[in-house]
Amino acid sequence: MEYVYAALILNESGEEINEDNLTDVLDAAGVDVEESRVKALVAALEDVDIDEAVEEAAAAPAAAAGGAAAGG
């Protein structure tokens, strides 16, 4: 999960989500970075609108948290 969080931080700080930056963030957090995974993530995020995905989720945690309650 930490790889994706690292991408999310870069997205908010406005830095480019590339291998170097991701590796820096993960390094700083003491993560033992796997290069192939970083590569794969960068490639995968190329076509994703991160802001949109994040915004949609902002509405959903509520749903998520509420979901349990509503179901109960």
Partner: peptide, 17 residues
Amino acid sequence: AQLRALAAQIDDEEALP
């Protein structure tokens, strides 16, 4: 939730734990 929403947009299994 944001993490999961973003992950849901990613097709490549290599990129995800």
